[in-house]
């Protein structure tokens, strides 16, 4: 029984990582209307940038992370502007755009391999001694991951509901044509979304790397399909759905992982298939597209 509760504890950590990454992916998917298969590599690049600022430039971890967030926001906006936008302007269908993101994925992954090599690195942060927290046994770093994720979700919520930009993001995601004829220019909204995506991808990647205690160039890519499971489970383009999806996938994978640890991530897809069989629109029922 204690193993079971312990697994739920780990599940919350995984859920925290998945929520950070999943919300970034689903927001961009909703606003731009195509899936981004380079997202895993964007996460990884964010991790390496943080690591460069932290372990090589010897900045404090928080400062290193903040710098990496700014860089990744800029890199994601630049990628979208330089590579994706010409295809979008040409009216390419979502399938073509998805394949272009595969290309971006290869480019980013090759850049990472070329600069940092294929070996694994680690942040070597303090706080890896587990604390006894009632039924849970978690390290301070894992608690920090959960705290960061909850705080980030709250900030995303405020951004989406309290600011004009956030409302415009949701409007463009909900019905882009209506947004256009109502005077909302999609371009600045799409740019802001990519910036936010870069920030969340980096936070998710760093949380993943810190939780796994080491990372290599395949970090984000290996995790990408679990993130897609979270996004689809929550309903594409629905940030609150992704948060709930992350909680479900995180806890279920860790608990099932007690019995079949080698298939932990695959469990995410079993959950996805089972849920979609009964609720094709995802966990959160929307008020209907109209």
């Amino acid at each position: 029984m204690s193993f079971f509760i312990q697994a739920i504890g780990f599940g919350l950590v995984t859920a925290a990582v998945l929520a950070l990454a999943g919300v970034g992916l689903t927001l961009q998917f909703g606003v731009t209307n195509y899936a981004n298969f380079a997202y895993g590599d964007m996460m990884t690049l964010g991790v390496y940038l943080t690591w460069v600022f932290f372990a090589i430039a010897h900045l404090t971890f928080v400062l290193a992370l903040l710098l990496a967030l700014v860089c990744m926001a800029a890199i994601c906006v630049a990628t979208a502007e330089v590579i994706m936008r010409p295809f979008v302007l040409r009216g390419s269908p979502p399938l073509i755009l998805l394949i272009v993101t595969f290309g971006v994925s290869l480019i980013l992954n090759s850049i990472i391999l070329a600069i940092w090599g294929a070996g694994s690195e680690a942040f070597q942060l303090p706080g890896t001694q587990p604390l006894d927290l009632g039924p849970f046994l978690l390290t301070p770093l894992q608690l920090l991951i959960i705290g960061t994720s909850v705080a980030a979700m709250f900030v995303v919520h405020l951004l989406l509901t309290r600011t004009s930009m956030g409302k415009r993001m949701r409007a463009v995601s909900d019905n882009r044509e209506l947004a256009r004829v109502s005077g909302i220019s999609p371009t600045p909204v799409i740019r802001a979304t990519w910036a936010l995506t870069g920030v969340l991808a980096t936070l998710g990647g760093v949380a993943l790397a810190v939780d796994a205690s080491q990372f290599s160039p395949g970090l984000g890519e290996g995790f990408l399909f679990a993130i897609f499971a979270v996004v689809i489970l929550g309903g594409v383009g629905k940030p609150y759905g992704a948060m709930l999806g992350a909680l479900v996938v995180g806890v279920v994978t860790e608990v099932i992982g007690l019995w079949i640890p080698q298939y932990k991530l695959d469990v995410a897809f079993v959950v996805l298939i089972v849920v979609l069989l009964f609720r094709p629109e995802g966990l959160i029922r929307s008020a209907g597209k109209a």
């Binding site: 949701r170 008020a287 109209a290």
Partner: peptide, 18 residues
């Protein structure tokens, strides 16, 4: 067919058009 942003609240639908 009247259009709205279904996942925005009614007041948000109006605010976002400002």
């Amino acid at each position: 067919i009247s259009q709205a942003w279904p996942r925005l609240t009614v007041i948000e639908n109006v605010m976002v058009a400002a």
